[in-house]
Design a protein around this nucleic acid. Structure first.
Lengths: 206, 206
DNA sequence: AGCAAGTTTGCAGACCGTGCAGTTATACGC
DNA sequence: GCGTATAACTGCACGGTCTGCAAACTTGCT
């Protein structure tokens, strides 16, 4: 009956919807608990209780406790890959990266909560850094093509790590409150882009 | 008798020497085992057996299994701090960083082995990234002073992360063998420095 | 209804890491 | 030298993460 309605809302089967809901629940209760009493002080059993599932089930959804916190990493990664792949002809990878960061400024309340949780825990800050690596790899790949860089060329690594630093810096919302506005973020992005273009130009003149 | 020979070799007491030896032994056998059968496949019990100590003792020397691999991080950190603190008047923090990286090119065979071990394990690569953070913090501090940067200024983060990337890149010995010579490394450092100076200059002209 | 496939669960177990208390080795004053 | 204070080592028990496995359960489809 619904078999022929494959328009754009796939009307995911009950199974899929339930699964998604379970996943969302786990994320939500976990972040709430982490925010309330800290990441280390919250056990998998606590989360399982609050989400009304078995502890074992949590590991069916997330490979590790930390992965609950970074629940949307795969999605971000996919979006970044798409942004680099589908950028308009004639724009540089650097341009695409700037746009991507600017576009990723909005964050729902869950993501805000997540940032607090990460900021409150040493291990999670490490985890965040570590999980930035695949994103930088994506950037490096695109920049290598963009600059037609050879294997010994270090420019892609420099640029990618700098963009990563800018990304972190903008999302970290340290400093005074006025540095937390979209305008300020855009200004920072502009600065970073100018810096990197200047650096690339300096190398070009050697 | 030897009590009066306190020239420059402090002749650490037996206790201290033994402790140092135990630490060295643990590091050595651990790295050997990691290299032989992999980091994950080696348990603390294995290391304890091979080092002829109790498993419990290992945690008296290293806070975690990973810390065995990064046994010299504290020393590197101290050296970096000293290099930034004691740099000759008139040289920039960037100059000091370039010199520091150039000076840290030699590595004994244990450090080479360590790099192999890290390269072979996903988790250790993450750990390495995470442990770079305090070094970058040191750099950031020095660069902030150097540039007289305000709290909202992102230049220190950019520069530090780029230097960190260069540091990693040089130590990672990927690519062809000819890219693994000190000459090549120095050339890379020169490039990075030129890049960063160019970037800073570009921002200065705004 | 009933079968196939996917999901959830409990159980047992490996491993990391910590607190504690007892034992052993070193250092130091006499 | 000798005894005592001090530091290191050790064993033990425990809490926590994460995995493999097989049994129970739910969903999708005919």
């Amino acid at each position: 009956m619904f078999k022929h309605m494959d328009t754009d809302a796939p009307t995911l089967g009950l199974r899929e919807r339930k699964k998604q809901k379970t996943r969302d629940t786990i994320i939500k209760v976990a972040l709430d608990l982490f925010a309330e009493r800290g990441y280390e002080q919250t056990t998998i059993a606590d989360i399982a209780d609050a989400a009304d599932v078995s502890p074992r089930t949590i590991f069916a959804y997330f490979p590790s406790k930390e992965d609950i916190v970074f629940y949307d990493l795969a999605e971000v990664q996919a979006r970044l890959a798409a942004a680099l792949r589908n950028r308009p002809e004639g724009t540089t990878a650097l341009d695409a990266l700037g746009d991507f960061i600017a576009a990723s400024l909005e964050g729902d309340s869950q993501q805000v909560q997540r940032r607090c949780v990460i900021k409150a825990d040493e291990g999670l800050q490490r985890g965040k850094r570590a999980r930035l690596a695949p994103l930088e790899e994506l950037m490096i790949g695109a920049i290598v093509e963009d600059l037609d860089a050879g294997p010994g060329d270090i420019r892609p690594q420099i640029v990618a790590s700098a963009v990563g630093a800018a990304f972190s810096s903008i999302h970290d919302e340290n400093g005074p409150p006025e540095s937390n506005t979209p305008e300020h973020a855009k200004a920072v992005i502009e600065d970073v882009m100018a810096f990197l273009r200047g650096g690339l130009e300096a190398l070009r003149q050697r």
